[in-house]
Write a protein that binds this DNA or RNA. Structure first.
Lengths: 238, 238
DNA sequence: CAGTGGTCTAGACCACAGT
DNA sequence: CTGTGGTCTAGACCACTGA
């Protein structure tokens, strides 16, 4: 059967991340030193460092030679840009997700932004619309296209308030490993977008076109997002 | 004096990156295997892997277990978002930089977006306006604020067509190590922005607010960018 | 000074891809 | 099957920060 040994550095990463997000470690705190983490978890330094490297890349900690790993302040905006595989929303913001209709199977759009393989084209796609609300106000309108390949019963799932990433991971052993994204500022011309995001026509919206690659070789899915950035910023680290 | 031994993994990274950007390795090519790179450069695998990890993070290569490291296609857009320390523009686009006036020393603005330390506030800042053109069309309008600390003769430098990053690195031993950024889609309300970016009033622009942290502890600088995304997208990888 | 993170070595075993 | 990348160990020396 499928074997999924979770690497040690991943476990440690998840645990430390959770402790930071949950406030066990607070901004400015020092994490246990690398050697302490080694001893605590029976690991060696390269393994511990790999976990810390992931946290560093995502901006949860900053390292200072001779001092230690400092917990960084949490993003004020909404962490979408630099997210890598785990839940999207970072920080104290209150984020909920609402489906628009049910997922449905349909052909791919004709003028799809990303290029598709023959296999993807032939199977059609699962179409999925969601709205994300921050503090009960609509901020994201997200259209997702998944290749209709080996995703049994997907269309009958209820995805309200569930991370798509989590559903894919838990039910289909699919993990997002990376991807690419294109950003633009455009006018909210579309009636649907205005309605969902509570925007007047022609107001500026941030448009995000993303391709998300998964651990299953050749399996990518696509997300097109419109963001009302009147009250929030998208946040990223590098 | 300052000692700056460049790490082996950094050298290897720079060399491989150059070979990819220059087209020595092309899209779809396989890089030499990790063991081959070890032998070629007299390094061990963890060191080689660190260099490859950097390339992976920046999207230059994709790894496939059992196969090798595949050179990824170069960004179609303009690589600003995921840039980490090296020159910004990646790809075949023709990017030039033009100064608007000369750099000048002045007090920090009153309503500065990022919080400033007392030391930064007391020394004032170097103010710097630039326009970036892609294929001779204005795309970015960038306002940069540098703390006026230990940057002798900076205001008399000509920065036309030079990367600010390079100037800081070569002349002041300052390397950008990371940072944070906030993104919004806004209206081009400001007359200056419209003129520089060749935009009608109220057209949507992408607004990027960045804090860039350097290798000199406590030394950060700040960049506020307006992007005309009518013809180009900002590109990012994760 | 003692402790921290930064770099590096020299091995090892495993899972996966192409033959 | 061989070779690839993925993970991990058990050490080592260095440069830096704070006391």
């Amino acid at each position: 059967m499928t074997k999924r040994p979770i690497p040690h550095y991943r476990r440690l990463y998840e645990q430390l991340r959770k402790n930071i997000v949950d406030g066990v470690y607070r901004e400015g705190d020092l994490l246990p030193s690398e050697n302490e983490l080694c001893a605590l978890h029976n690991l060696t330094r390269p393994t511990v460092r790999k976990a810390l490297d992931m946290l560093t890349h995502e901006g949860f900690i900053k390292k200072r030679q001779g001092l230690g790993s400092i917990v960084h302040k949490l993003p004020k905006g909404i962490g979408i840009l630099s997210v890598a595989g785990t839940t999207s929303a970072v920080g104290s913001t209150n984020l909920t997700t609402r489906m628009v209709g049910k997922p449905r199977v349909q052909p791919w759009p004709d003028d799809f932004f990303f290029s598709l393989s023959a296999r993807e084209l032939s199977t059609g796609c699962i179409f999925l619309e969601r709205i994300r609300l921050v503090n009960d106000r609509p901020v994201f309108y997200d259209i997702t296209y998944l290749p209709n390949i080996n995703l049994p019963r997907f269309t009958s799932r209820n995805l309200d308030n569930k991370s798509l990433f989590d559903v894919l991971r838990q039910n289909y052993q699919l993990e997002v490993k990376g991807g690419e994204q294109y950003l633009k500022a455009i006018r909210a011309k579309d009636e649907t977008i205005c309605r969902y995001l509570n925007l007047a026509r022609d107001e500026p919206v941030l448009h995000l076109q993303r391709k998300l690659e998964t651990s299953r070789s050749g399996f990518s899915f696509y997300s097109f997002m419109y963001c009302n950035t009147n009250d929030f910023s998208l946040y990223g680290i590098f």
